Measured scan of single mutants.
Amino acid sequence: KLLSSIEQACDICRLKKLKCSKEKPKCAKCLKNNWECRYSPKTKRSPLTRAHLTEVESRLERLE
């Protein structure tokens, strides 16, 4: 599967780190437990900047 097509777990399953069936409108866990089942939009991760990478590398060197 391509990364862009990976389905996201519902908010509660993601928060509780449960295996989500990803069914809509309610996944199996939410249906069974009568929880409100919501699927928040995916958040875009910002790409690493060179400055951040350099900072992490220098912190790693100090720890070694």
Results as ranks from 00 to 15, higher is better:
45 R>N: 02
41 P>Y: 04
59 R>S: 07
44 K>R: 12
39 Y>C: 01
60 L>H: 04
51 A>L: 12
57 E>T: 03
8 Q>V: 05
13 C>Y: 06
13 C>L: 05
48 L>N: 01
55 E>Q: 10
42 K>V: 09
23 E>A: 14
35 W>G: 13
33 N>I: 03
52 H>Q: 05
9 A>W: 00
47 P>F: 00
6 I>D: 08
55 E>H: 10
10 C>T: 03
41 P>K: 08
2 L>K: 09
8 Q>P: 09
18 L>S: 10
11 D>I: 03
29 K>S: 06
32 K>I: 11
49 T>M: 07
29 K>A: 04
46 S>C: 01
14 R>E: 01
60 L>K: 09
63 L>Y: 06
14 R>D: 03
46 S>E: 01
63 L>W: 03
27 C>A: 04
54 T>N: 09
35 W>T: 13
33 N>P: 00
13 C>Q: 00
52 H>F: 09
3 L>Y: 10
43 T>F: 08
13 C>E: 05
44 K>E: 07
62 R>K: 09
49 T>W: 03
33 N>D: 09
20 C>N: 02
42 K>M: 12
34 N>D: 12
24 K>D: 12
8 Q>K: 10
58 S>F: 13
51 A>F: 10
12 I>Q: 11
17 K>R: 08
44 K>P: 13
4 S>F: 13
51 A>K: 11
11 D>A: 02
40 S>E: 04
25 P>E: 08
37 C>N: 00
12 I>V: 12
64 E>W: 09
25 P>S: 07
9 A>I: 08
25 P>T: 07
64 E>A: 06
16 K>D: 03
27 C>M: 02
63 L>F: 13
53 L>N: 01
18 L>N: 14
30 C>Q: 01
59 R>F: 00
4 S>R: 05
28 A>F: 09
19 K>V: 05
15 L>K: 09
3 L>R: 08
22 K>D: 04
55 E>A: 14
17 K>I: 05
48 L>Q: 04
58 S>Y: 15
50 R>W: 03
9 A>M: 01
19 K>R: 14
7 E>K: 08
11 D>R: 02
35 W>A: 15
45 R>S: 01
61 E>N: 10
6 I>N: 10
26 K>C: 13
19 K>M: 00
14 R>N: 03
28 A>H: 12
60 L>Q: 04
15 L>P: 00
1 K>C: 15
42 K>P: 15
49 T>Q: 06
59 R>N: 10
36 E>V: 14
26 K>H: 14
45 R>H: 03
10 C>H: 01
64 E>Y: 15
59 R>K: 10
40 S>M: 07
36 E>K: 12
22 K>Y: 04
53 L>D: 00
22 K>V: 07
44 K>L: 15
5 S>G: 09
50 R>T: 04
48 L>W: 06
32 K>N: 12
51 A>S: 09
35 W>V: 15
41 P>E: 11
39 Y>N: 01
34 N>R: 12
43 T>C: 14
20 C>E: 04
37 C>Y: 07
27 C>E: 01
57 E>R: 06
62 R>C: 09
30 C>R: 03
26 K>P: 03
10 C>L: 00
21 S>L: 02
41 P>S: 08
61 E>H: 12
27 C>L: 01
36 E>W: 07
42 K>E: 03
18 L>P: 07
9 A>Y: 01
52 H>L: 06
22 K>M: 07
47 P>M: 05
48 L>G: 04
4 S>W: 09
50 R>L: 07
62 R>M: 15
1 K>I: 04
12 I>F: 15
58 S>L: 12
56 V>H: 06
47 P>W: 06
40 S>V: 07
1 K>L: 13
44 K>F: 08
14 R>I: 00
48 L>S: 03
38 R>Q: 12
6 I>V: 09
13 C>P: 00
42 K>A: 12
30 C>F: 03
42 K>L: 12
51 A>V: 15
24 K>T: 15
52 H>K: 05
29 K>D: 04
60 L>G: 05
17 K>L: 03
38 R>V: 13
54 T>Q: 11
39 Y>F: 09
12 I>S: 09
10 C>K: 05
17 K>D: 02
22 K>G: 02
19 K>Y: 01
57 E>A: 01
3 L>C: 11
41 P>A: 10
47 P>E: 06
29 K>L: 09
2 L>D: 14
54 T>L: 07
21 S>F: 01
64 E>S: 14
51 A>G: 08
45 R>Y: 01
6 I>R: 04
6 I>M: 15
55 E>C: 13
38 R>E: 15
16 K>P: 01
19 K>H: 06
57 E>F: 07
8 Q>C: 04
61 E>T: 15
50 R>H: 00
35 W>R: 11
30 C>D: 02
49 T>H: 05
64 E>V: 10
45 R>D: 01
41 P>Q: 09
35 W>D: 12
62 R>A: 15
9 A>L: 01
42 K>G: 09
5 S>H: 10
62 R>W: 08
58 S>V: 14
58 S>I: 15
12 I>T: 10
12 I>G: 14
61 E>A: 10
38 R>I: 15
33 N>K: 10
2 L>R: 09
12 I>K: 10
30 C>A: 05
8 Q>H: 10
32 K>A: 11
35 W>C: 09
11 D>Y: 04
34 N>E: 13
11 D>W: 03
9 A>T: 03
31 L>A: 15
3 L>I: 11
48 L>I: 08
35 W>P: 04
52 H>G: 00
18 L>F: 03
39 Y>S: 04
10 C>F: 01
6 I>W: 13
46 S>I: 01
61 E>W: 13
8 Q>E: 03
44 K>N: 11
10 C>Y: 05
12 I>W: 14
62 R>G: 06
44 K>Y: 10
64 E>D: 08
31 L>G: 14
10 C>V: 02
36 E>A: 13
5 S>W: 08
32 K>P: 03
52 H>P: 00
34 N>L: 13
25 P>Y: 01
11 D>N: 07
61 E>Y: 11
23 E>M: 13
46 S>N: 01
19 K>C: 06
5 S>E: 13
21 S>N: 08
18 L>Y: 10
55 E>V: 10
44 K>A: 15
32 K>W: 07
33 N>R: 11
37 C>S: 03
12 I>P: 12
11 D>L: 04
64 E>G: 04
20 C>D: 03
5 S>P: 08
61 E>G: 15
50 R>N: 00
53 L>I: 03
20 C>Q: 04
45 R>F: 03
51 A>W: 04
63 L>P: 02
35 W>S: 14
42 K>C: 07
31 L>T: 10
16 K>V: 01
39 Y>R: 07
22 K>P: 04
46 S>P: 11
44 K>D: 04
6 I>E: 11
14 R>C: 02
25 P>C: 02
20 C>I: 06
24 K>A: 14
